[in-house]
Design a protein around this nucleic acid. Structure first.
Length: 482
RNA sequence: GGCCGGGUGGCGAAGUGGCUAACGCAGAGGUCUGCAAAACCUCCACUCGUGGGUUCAAAUCCCACCCCGGCCUCCA
């Protein structure tokens, strides 16, 4: 195993060396649950889902933690607007998140902690910071003193003085330095509050991640990830808190995925964000595109590159999935059944080692999914060739079997192509509809047999108008949605 | 202003010193088919933002310039 990845902290690609041989702990900043997930969220979740899959396929025993931020200003405001409790709002969007992720093929994390369930852990960190002179209480709030943490700015590459000169933050009387950030917010009337050594209040934004990662991964761990926009200030502040409290190094590797941009009518590319109001929710998209097409769209570019979103691009991704499922369907018809979509591990020996080798080489190199996908597509072609062979010879069938196993399994490493191919092409058809189509197909084939091609073509056109495309194969006629 | 990242065919997107610049989509021709569709085969960037330079050799390294995006404030 020789995984290397681009570490935001060192700004280089470097080998991944687990702190404990054979194990890996990874924490990814999840959602603030006050609204539906949009494509930007989908990108983080899919990217890290694949990263975790690859770490596991490489033989590592991975502990994956992805949190929910279930208390924050936006949640409180939105709950008030909707006239529901903030707990109800949060739970609503946690459930929505899980539904969306299931559609995208994103697996659950090993631990999905909520901020509000780790208040005690936060208090411990803040107390330690206070004891070490890195935090101070002021007017019911508790702040982190950035001046007292010499490494402040090391992740974002911004020296403290530069940050100060460019600071656009509001001057707050209670802060000693404008860049100081709040660890604990004193209670305001009407807001939820928890008891604390500094009086009632609620947590600041950054402290929760230090608390939850420490609880489940230990005082130091291997990898921490999230969207690029979290580098500053969120992750910078997490480092300050965590290292400040424990007095030693915290996270070895930092991974950040690139943004999703929206191409405006003017041709301008703008980042998709809630504050710009130009986001598309996963939910809306799923009404029009299969989740797997969205997943393909995301994995077709490298996780660190910017990604432009548009409907046409999603259509292209869907066509790519058609190709993979088309090959699987051909194999299924030929072999009678498909092998299970079980991820391939690096240690396993396989019959067509070149494909597997190239796949793992691509993924080992900073999780290069576009290159890994290229291998999957080449396999799809080989499977199609094998399935089209007229020969019934045993060795031809054996080769097709081996190629199909690899296609399915390597697909599973990316979380693609694990479904039933017929279901992919005939998505959403009711039993009634399927029967009706089958009867039309029977009528058409009767006409074809009688060489009444005008009638056969009429039926085909009739179905085509309903978006049903017919495909005449050696073993009969199948249909798909067009 | 500071700091990151990027400009590769019609589109998306890999490749970061040396085989014919992957792969997908779209397109063209062919095979198959009653005709299609799907599949397969062939073709589709003498060239990698622009201009210099280093080198036997550069899309890949260096310098300059042009353009685009992001972060520096809540954001994935």
């Amino acid at each position: 195993m020789a995984i290397s990845f681009y570490n935001t902290l060192t700004r280089r690609k470097e080998p991944f060396v687990p702190r404990v041989a054979g194990k890996a702990g990874i924490y990814v900043c999840g959602m603030t649950v006050y609204d539906h997930c949009h494509i930007g969220h989908a990108r983080v979740m899919v990217s890290f889902d694949v990263i975790v899959r690859h770490l596991r396929a490489s033989g590592l025993d991975v502990t994956f933690v992805r949190n929910f931020t279930d208390i924050d200003d936006k949640i409180l405001r939105r709950a008030q607007e909707l006239d529901i409790s903030w707990q109800t709002l949060a739970q609503l969007h946690i459930d929505g998140f899980h539904e969306d992720m299931a559609a995208l093929g994103v697996a659950r994390a090993d631990v999905e902690p909520k901020a509000t369930e780790h208040i005690a852990e936060m208090h411990v960190i803040i107390q330690r910071l206070e004891a070490r002179g890195l935090a101070y209480a002021a007017g019911g709030d508790v702040y982190f003193a950035v001046d007292r943490f010499p490494d402040y700015g090391k992740l974002s590459g911004k020296p403290l003085d530069e940050l100060q000169s460019g600071a656009r933050v509001e001057v707050d009387e209670r802060k000693r330095n404008p860049l100081d950030f709040v660890l604990w917010k004193g209670a305001k009337p009407g807001e939820p509050q928890w008891e604390s050594p500094w009086g009632p209040g609620r947590p600041g934004w950054h402290i929760e991640c230090s608390a939850m990662s420490g609880r489940y991964l230990g005082e130091s761990f291997d990898l921490h990830g999230g969207g690029m926009d979290l580098i500053f200030p969120h992750h910078e502040n997490e480092i300050a808190q965590s290292e400040g409290a424990c007095g030693h190094g915290w996270v070895n590797g930092w991974l950040h995925n690139g943004f999703v941009n929206v191409v405006a009518e003017s041709g301008e590319r703008v980042k998709m964000s809630k504050s710009l109001g130009n986001f598309r929710t996963i939910r809306d998209l799923l009404a029009v595109f299969p989740g797997e097409a969205l997943r393909m769209f995301i994995l077709n570019s490298h996780y660190r590159s910017p990604l432009d979103f548009s409907g046409e691009l999603l259509e292209t991704a869907r066509a790519g999935m058609d190709r993979i499922y088309g090959a699987l369907r051909a194999a299924q018809e030929r072999l009678g059944a498909l092998p299970g979509a079980v991820p391939l591990t690096a240690a396993e020996g396989v019959d067509q080692p070149e494909f597997a080798r190239r796949f793992f080489e691509a993924m080992d190199d900073d999780f290069n999914t576009p290159q890994a996908l290229a291998v999957v597509f080449e396999l799809a072609r080989e499977v199609n060739r094998g399935a089209a062979q007229p020969s019934e010879a045993a060795d031809a069938r054996a080769l097709l079997e081996k190629l199909t196993v690899l296609l399915r399994r390597l697909g599973a490493n990316l979380g693609l192509g694990g479904g039933d191919p017929v279901a992919w092409f005939q998505a959403g058809a009711s039993d009634n509809e399927s029967e009706e189509i089958a009867s039309w197909i029977a009528r058409r084939n009767a006409a074809r047999k009688a060489r009444e091609f005008a009638e056969a073509d009429r039926i085909r056109r009739l179905l085509a108008e309903k978006g049903i495309l017919l495909e005449d194969g050696k073993d009969g006629t199948t249909w798909r949605r067009g």
